[in-house]
Design a protein around this nucleic acid. Structure first.
Lengths: 186, 186
DNA sequence: ACCTGAACACCGTTCAAGT
DNA sequence: ACCTGAACACCGTTCAAGT
């Protein structure tokens, strides 16, 4: 049944969370899904393809968060802080999802553009309200996303002096950016 | 001789550039350095420790770039665009260097803080000139670095609509941020 | 102090069968 | 159409020796 495929993806995601991509062995995935160690090859071309399915599922789940907002700059900022919290809670999924994906893996590209569309619309809406600087909405959205992404990634790597050391955490850096953008919009 | 250690690091860096961390097999590293496949264990505790040495060397090399500037906002921006170009040219070293490093690996932490110090000073100097918004220099430096880092990482993953698709590349996003910051400083 | 060859456990992948 | 057990090549790491 196609149920096996879903169980394989769920098992892979759980192993990924626990120990990163190296811990996602096809033997453990099979064991957790109740099948043999090479049953995954009946559903996925290889290990990389299985991980791509995990990333696509995660991206679809995350895309929902980016689509629900009225479009004030507070909404846009809340989306980005939600993005940062997601990265902090599921660091391995975060790295996997935004890693390098050559070719078209399991509709990963479509899921990514779908997730971005809602966010771009929210940014455009905040611009129309005069709460964010004018200009190409997609370009401004890219810049905002880049900051949230970079802050989350540096934070996970311990490369931000950090909230513990008296420095600014990733969420605070996102808040700072929006303060600057609102100031520049005036 | 201690020369072997340097050859091992150089060989590991070359293999990393070609095929990522998975391509850095101790057998190939040894072969390229002219020693047996487990000679590396006389110089490094394990594979992870060897990669940490590669990251530390790269960080030291990159730190030089961040230390040479008069401190205008143009200098700070040029540093960040240099950072982005470095990531684009050596994507594997970029990901390795800013990945997760548990514990104190081969003085990696010291190299990182040294690299940051020069950059923080340049930011503070640009603030003193009134070219960047006032406030805690280290916090502003973190925000700027987060944007450059995120833009580079998203660009490498193909998650920026990109210069090819008509969208903004990582370097352009860095330029945009500085435009906003200069506007907010007035 | 530094290096080597053999060996071990583990992993991704393939193959010949099975239902 | 989906699954299994055996097998292969490869890799990180350890060990007993060698100089």
């Amino acid at each position: 049944m196609a149920d096996t495929r879903q169980r394989l993806i769920a098992a892979a995601a759980a192993l990924l969370d626990q120990g990163g991509p190296a811990a996602v062995t096809l033997r453990d995935v099979g064991r957790a899904a109740g099948v043999s160690h090479n049953a995954p090859y009946r559903h996925f071309a290889d290990k990389r393809s299985l991980l791509a399915a995990v990333a696509a599922a995660e991206l679809a789940r995350q895309g929902v968060n980016l689509g629900q907002a009225d479009g004030s700059s507070d909404d846009v900022r809340a989306m980005m802080q939600g993005y940062v919290r997601w990265a902090q809670r599921y660091p391995e999924r975060f790295h996997l999802t935004f890693g390098r994906w050559e070719g078209e893996d399991a509709g990963l590209g479509e899921a990514a553009t779908a997730a971005r569309t809602g966010f771009n619309r929210a940014v455009a809406s905040a611009q129309a309200r005069g709460e964010l600087p004018a200009g190409d909405p997609e370009r401004l959205a890219s810049m905002i996303l880049a900051l949230a992404h970079g802050a989350a990634d540096l934070g996970l790597g311990g490369h931000l002096s950090g909230p513990g050391k008296g420095g600014a955490g990733a969420e605070a850096l996102v808040a700072d950016l929006f303060d600057y953008l609102r100031a520049a919009a005036r």
